[in-house]
């Protein structure tokens, strides 16, 4: 029997894959990636990088105390503007808040909390939603009926109101926020995943596995979940952005991460009047951080959507 040499094919394929990799890198959204990298490394290195503590006020100089309170000695000076404004100091480059704490340091520590909450929240939601979606899509019948009716009901819940309700039951706290995010957002995943599974299970390789007598759990684990991962990863990156906003909203409403720990949402919440009173830096800086994170996550998600789709990828 003639053996078809596939060696030549393989080197071509590998070379093509390498070329494709390079091209993918060139097309990657470099700015969002860079922003995310900076945010993540700042969050990790916050204790090293932060010029001041996150909870304690910055010790003021005598001139500052004199200028503000008329005495040379005071515990802190509040609402110092950023360094380029009049009255600003290089020591607190982005100013201080109403308790004289350094805004930059709090933003750095806040990145930790906001990222942990958003990533783990979206991850748990993804895990719950994927499992339920695969079960509904593959097992069909009453599994599908029950899971999808719950999902539909869940999707109609106003997520913020639901989150407030949950947190008023559970009380504020970082891991409670994570739990809330998971409970609120799983339905987004399950609906998308179910749709995907409905089409995958009609593909011949799933039918082949069924015909060869392979168990349902094995089929789910080996054939379905790897093939819905594209969708899940993309949804995840989009949900991270939404989770940051929800976390901020919850903290803003006083049911999120409890003070004095800094999270970006909380920082904005505690200073809600300051914008009106001219202390813009207390709102703008955490707001910018939230915007940057959400935008980069969305852009990355969009790029992933194209990258992970073999049909779009090769265009």
């Amino acid at each position: 029997m003639a053996t078809i040499p596939i060696g030549a094919d393989r080197t071509i394929a590998t070379r093509r894959a390498a070329r494709r990799g390079l091209r993918a890198l060139r097309q990657a959204p470099l700015i969002p990636l860079a922003i995310l990298a900076v945010l993540v490394s700042v969050a990790i290195l916050a204790p090293v990088l932060a010029p001041h503590g996150r909870l304690d006020p910055v010790k003021p100089t005598q001139e500052q105390c004199l200028a503000k309170y008329g005495t040379p000695d005071c515990p802190y000076v509040d609402n110092v503007p950023p360094f380029w404004s009049r009255g600003g100091r290089l020591e607190t480059p982005l100013g201080t808040d109403f308790l004289g704490r350094d805004v930059l340091s709090r933003l750095m520590y806040g990145a930790r909390i906001s990222l942990i909450v958003a990533l783990t929240g979206a991850l748990f939601a993804g895990a719950i939603g994927t499992v339920l979606g695969v079960l509904a899509g593959y097992m069909g019948r009453w599994w599908d009926e029950i899971i999808m009716r719950i999902t539909d009901a869940w999707l109609t819940l106003p997520s913020l109101v639901f989150a407030i309700l949950l947190s008023s039951v559970r009380g504020p706290g970082l891991w409670n926020v994570v739990l809330i995010l998971a409970l609120v957002f799983w339905s987004r995943y399950s609906r998308a995943v179910r749709g995907e599974v409905l089409s995958i299970r009609e593909r011949d390789f799933v039918k082949l596995a069924e015909i060869s007598g392979i168990g349902k759990l094995t089929i789910i684990w080996r054939h379905l979940i790897p093939n819905v991962m594209n969708t899940v990863v993309v949804l995840f990156s989009l949900q991270v952005g939404v989770a940051v906003i929800i976390e901020a909203s919850l903290s803003f409403l006083g049911v999120g991460v409890p003070p004095p720990e800094p999270s970006w949402g909380l920082m904005m919440a505690q200073e809600r009047e300051s914008l009106m009173e001219g202390r813009w830096w207390l709102e703008i800086f955490p707001g910018t951080c939230v915007t940057l994170l959400v935008l980069s996550a969305n852009m990355l998600g969009d790029w992933l959507r194209v990258r992970l789709d073999p049909q779009l990828r090769n265009r």
Partner: peptide, 16 residues
């Protein structure tokens, strides 16, 4: 008793 389907693009799992 096994089967070979028509479309070889759909009958092999792309992730395995």
């Amino acid at each position: 008793v096994q089967v070979v389907f028509q479309d070889p693009y759909s009958s092999l799992s792309p992730r395995m």
